[in-house]
Design a protein around this nucleic acid. Structure first.
Lengths: 117, 117
DNA sequence: CTCCATATATCGTCTGACGATATATATCAT
DNA sequence: ATGATATATATCGTCAGACGATATATGGAG
């Protein structure tokens, strides 16, 4: 059961930034790292990945530069900025708090409800 | 720090169904119950709430009927269907699994990365 | 020479959350 | 009484983000 697009929504950027915190990297490898880390449950689609990069660069969360390797297809490397680090830390904290609340909401409270109406 | 719209996305229906599992109820009270249960962190907007009801009724997750109370504004009550229960159980399980994976993804793995690249 | 993995990129579509707005009733303060 | 506030439901239009489809380029395996 893979992670659905709607449950992913809003998390993509944070997940990518989490990878970039480990050092500069390029799209394809970030994508593979995420796939591995999620044990195959999350495979970001190309369109999702690259639109996220663009968006994040425009909003100053990351910077990019072309890799100088001659071998293979050209790679565009991304580097996390200070703004990106702040954004990441905020989202991380936010997620843990949200997850706790969401857990309660999804469980629904009220252990033994018997309301007839 | 309230729950952002994007983190909410995809969870609304599950959260509403969790409430209806406690017995038939109407929109306004469901909304208040969610607000209380989340300690004010999640306040579903009217538009979100009522579009969700419509969507869910059309897809057979819930059924509705007008309350017969003469007092106050008319209330439309909702009842969870069998399909709704299945949907809820699936989403609940799915969420707990997804949350676990998402936790790893957001933390990003690789404790002490020092890749210069 | 063709197929596949690597690698990046854009266009257009669809879905779901929400701001704005409308409508109606009951209660409470002025 | 009159206007504000809480209760209660509903729709329209907008916006953002995930993704299917598609395009392009390279290098190695068969």
């Amino acid at each position: 059961m893979a992670i659905s697009n709607d449950l992913l929504r809003g998390h993509t950027e944070t997940i990518i930034l989490a990878q970039l915190k480990n050092g500069d990297n390029y799209g394809y490898e970030i994508s593979k790292a995420i796939e591995t880390l999620s044990m195959g449950q999350l495979v970001l689609k190309d369109a999702t990945l690259y639109t996220a990069f663009r968006r994040m660069e425009q909003s100053g969360l990351i910077e990019s530069y072309w890799g100088d390797g001659d071998a293979g297809a050209r790679r565009r490397y991304y580097r996390i900025t200070d703004a990106g680090r702040n954004f990441y830390e905020n989202n991380k904290t936010n997620w843990f708090e949200t997850a706790e609340i969401l857990k309660n909401l999804i469980l629904g409270g009220k252990k033994n409800a018997d309301r007839t109406l």
